[in-house]
Every structure is written in structure tokens, then in C-alpha cells.
Amino acid sequence: MADMNPITAWRKLLALPNESRTKTLVMAFLVSAICALGVSGATVILRPIQAANRAAEQQARLEGLIAGIPGMSELMAAEGGSLSTVVVDLTEGRAATDVTPATLSAALEDNANWTGLSEGQDLAGLGQRPNYAQIYFLRGADGEISLALLPISGAGYVAPIDAILALRADMNTIAGLAVLAQAETPGLGGRIEEPAWLSQWRGKEIADASGAVRFAVAKGRASSEFEVDGITGATRTSSAVTRIMRFWLGPDGYGPLIDAIQRGEF
């Protein structure tokens, strides 16, 4: 280290034989450092655009879901075209008091706001469930809830499936489903996001008179008001959708909230 001039030091390094230990270490360090810079740079610079893309896509799906439900576009127009956003406490089944939509993502970074799920509870393959969820209400002119939009998610056959379920005021009739994200097999399980398949969800019912959740994706043709047609060649995806629906409509998902809304607490 006698010579501190960086240019001569660089020349000396390059002149070293490729097998020398110093050069091996320095080259390894330099290549890693430059690559790390490039990767981090690209990620940081492009993140805002990617976040905007995802947000725009979710918004478009949400709007598509509402537009696909008869009568809803008119209601939206009458209401000034906006949904009210509510953060709910899933365990208590009521509006969260200390978490707002703005602070929700910060709250969910805290592990204390997640509930672990045992194997028997974890129908949707989530592992753990947030204690808070952001849902949307569409209210009629009299202030009564006419539509509730509930985000649901869970493990699909290939990758997680994210969707939004729209329920009518009775909280038992499905108004529609919008798939926000999925990566199932294209042409088979991937058909869960096709309008033709999603359109048959409209008007299906969730639970029977006793309150037990009966909804399912049928194996084959739907045979009752609780079923939608299965997708040929996509048994695993179909049953994943059933399990996700059963989980989120059940006691560990939106069950308490649905009961509360049916009691008229919102």
C-alpha cells in the first residue's frame, strides 16, 4: 500500500495475473457492488410506476365489478360516483376505531395486528390473517347499504388469488366477483378471470337458512343456488376458489362482520 494514487493502483490491479488472490477478491467485490447498484437503482427508480400500475389495475377491476352489476352504475352516478371506504376489525366484526385507510398499511406492518391460523382454520392457505381489512360500501339514497365489496385472497393452484366479492344488502346474495390477481394455468385455471365464468356468480347465495356457508364451485355443472359451474380441467383452481370463499365467509373471515351488517349495525 505504498502507492495511494488510485489510477496507478488500478493499473497495477489490472496487471496482476488473473489467478492472484487479490485480483480475485477485488474483481468479486467490484462485480457484486456494480450489480447491486444497478439492481437497486432500477428497483427504486421504477417502484412508483409499478405501484401506480397495480393501483390502476385494482381500481379498474373494482369499477368493472360495479359496472357489471345491473343497476349499480346508476346508483354510483346518483351517489356522486364514489364508494365509502371503511377499515373493519375482522375479529370484532365492527368498524376499526384506531385504524383508518391511511394508516392501514402501517398497522399491517406490525405483527401484533395479524392472527395466526391453525391448520384446521386455514382453509385459504394464508398462514395468517390481518386483523384489519379495508372494505367498501355503496349506499343508496336513504343511507342504507346496497352493496358491500369485500376483498378476499388465498392460495390458488399456482400462485395467490386476490379477488373482491360484492354482496347485496342482505349480505347473503352475491352481486359479483372481480379477480384482481391470479397466475393460474392460462386457458384452464386462468379462466377464473373471464367475464363469462364470473357472470354466473351474480345472484348465487352464500348460506342456507341455518346460516351455514354452503357456497361452492361445483365439480361440473352447478346444481343449486349455492353453486357456480366448475372449470373443466382446473379442478385444483376450482377447489381453491371454494376454500377461499369458505374461509372468508366463515367465522375467521368476514363472518362476524356479515352478522353485524345483517343486524343493522352499519
Binding site: 489490472l14 488473473n18 489467478e19 492472484s20 485480483k23 480475485t24 474483481m27 468479486a28 462485480v31 457484486s32 450489480c35 447491486a36 444497478g38 439492481v39 432500477a42 428497483t43 421504477l46 410506476i49 409499478q50 400500475n53
Partner: peptide, 29 residues
């Protein structure tokens, strides 16, 4: 001419992997 023989595959993979991540990020954006 300056890739040490003993780590040449790792150096190549690191470069390829970094480029792939950058391309993937660009596609996502």
C-alpha cells in the same frame, strides 16, 4: 481478460442475474 478463472462462472451468473432483475423491473413498470 480480467475475470479470474476460479470465480468466472459466479461472476457471469451475477452479471446475468442482475440484468434479468433489471429487465423484469422494467417489464413490470
Amino acid at each position: 481478460n480480467h475475470i479470474p478463472g476460479s470465480i468466472r462462472l459466479i461472476v457471469q451468473i451475477v452479471i446475468v442475474a442482475s440484468l434479468v432483475i433489471v429487465i423484469d423491473q422494467i417489464l413490470q413498470a
